[in-house]
Design a protein around this nucleic acid. Sequence first.
DNA 1: AAAATTGACATTTTT
DNA 2: TGTCAATTTT
Length: 702
Amino acid sequence: MINFEKSLNPAQLEAVTSTRGPVLVIAGAGSGKTRTIVYRLAYLVHQGELPENILLLTFTRKAATQMLRRSGKLLNREMGMVSGGTFHGFSFLLLKKFAQSLGFSDGFTVMDAADAEEVLKGARSELDIGKGDKSFPRNRTVLSYLSKARNKEISLQVLMEQEAMHLINYLEDIIRLEREYFLEKQRLSLVDFDDLLFFTERLLQENPEVLDYVRSVYRHVMVDEYQDTNLVQARLARLIASPQGNIMVVGDDAQSIYGFRGADVGNILDFPRDFPGARIIKLEQNYRSTQPLLDLTNCILSSMGQKFEKNLFSSRLEGPKPELITPASDTSQAKAVLERIEKLSATYPLHEIAVLFRAAYHAYPLEVELNRASVSYQKFGGMKFSEAAHIKDVLSLMRMVLDPPDLLAWTRGLALLKGVGPKTALRLYRALNQGDASNAAQETERFKSRSEQFSGLMHLLEQQRQFQEGPYHFLKEILNFYRPILEEKYMEDLPRRLGGLEQLEQIASAYDQLDVFLADMVLENSEPTGLQAREDTLVLSTIHSAKGLEWSAVLIIDLVEERFPSRRAMLDPGEVDEEHRLLYVACTRARDYLGLFVPESLYHRVSGFNQPVLPSPFIREIDSGLYSRLRDDQYAKIPAGYKSRVSVPPEMSRGFPANGYCRHKIFGRGKVVQAMPPNKYRVNFPGFGLKTISGDYLIFED
DNA sequence: AAAATTGACATTTTT
DNA sequence: TGTCAATTTT
């Protein structure tokens, strides 16, 4: 028997035991949110509720499985029966079950971003829009506007006035495109991510019997990360739970970081209004971070306007202050990070250390350095595993056996064959899946005799249809077929891609139903890591992907202007606020150690040189008493008395005059003794004497 | 019609 | 840097 009173603090206990009616839990970072949800699940089960009658909507699959695992441990038995997942995943299952009610008599296929682009491309050539016009926005850009307008539930016109004034002339065209995209989806029984949510809402609104069914099954609803839901998701929650229903939502308005895809902090602020009589519970005690770290995150918090007052306090008083480290360039930053990690790894296992960044590509220089030092790491965020071209190829080949016939999969799969392009692929698809049987047989035979590859593939598919092997074995067969194609198509980085396919095999081996495997690959962000992160593996992650996770040591890199906040966000004060919250989320991931890295210059591809950058405004406004500047010997060698200092990081020496003597030697810091207009300087480098250097190679320090 | 080549361009974040 | 779209070659 679990002792709830002993295991929880009073606020947590109240959240756990308030099982009747609506409850809003405002959970500050590190306040035991997951623990509360897990104990509440256990509590409900103890009260006699059946796990399958509890619906747990979380933001990511990762979070869901983590919770189920923890509650399984707590209850000493399987909690696998708890229903749950992402809003999208839940919607998919519901739609699949009631597809006929929505007019999909033969089922439907869920598109990922690449599929949607393909459909839009078709619509565009159909309507002959933007042809040869170089300033017409890209397909993916157009799609992002369509999606954003839908998620924010504003018209395209309003959205474009807000975010893309320079493209407003194309408004008419884009509206026509949207219409055609919509029709094409309908014709092909395709459903995009946004459709999943809106169709589900329609399903529940228009079919009282379905709504009754859903409400009778899910007697308790819990929603995690409520601050990141958008309008339609909030309405779905309301529909499923009903206004007087047993619903608990958990969130933190200070951690809302998904505004860009329509998340609305208003949902959490309006919860008391949407669910009259809702009980509001605040979790303010922080169990994660030491007080010095909390002082810094509270400082970040205090400079943001927050709606629900929070006062986080820690029970962990001891610990070092956060560190601020300022390497000369992004490459030196990578080295400095590596150094820190090596020191930290004496205290913590590698998987308890994480490096976080604003955008996935910010980690490139670090990845180079880690590979060089052969430190193993896992990277989260950025391009999704299942969106890599070779993975999509293989998945398309597998999708070719499914019903209803998946046009996008067929055209992609067939176009892999020699001598087959878009046109032929389409013709074959029509012959095989739409024409009458004799015509299909004829066409197939004709093509088989011409293309050995084609007959090989057809044989594979036929076999699969007959014997219905599991995903793993089918994948093996498909890979035998695909490997030669891969070798020709992607000669350059074959090893990496082969590695990816191996990971795919691993994922597939965990499934026994082909259609479930394929749907999951599109819908759930199935990571190649499997269920558990490997031991002794460093974590690299975008801050967005780090949401809800925690590590003993967290290092945040590239805290400079233009990158954090990102340049695009600077246009809109609302977006700057969101970036601010993003930094808050990043810093609150740390338990013991927090390292803030502010490089003084970044490599600039266009010019080929490093360009000086300023620290992020978010860093500048932190009270400097709250962190310690790392006194790193490598950067503290400047003799006293040097006033006008410059530094030349080693990686800049590349551009130095090739006459030998300073190519690899002059770097570090020196004093400018004479300026030689327009752009040369006489610099005295300790130990090397006077050199004349072009201003392009220098970073001025004061 | 497919395959290869060139040229332009933009670079957040996720389901 | 790599990706996408338009253009030329096969």
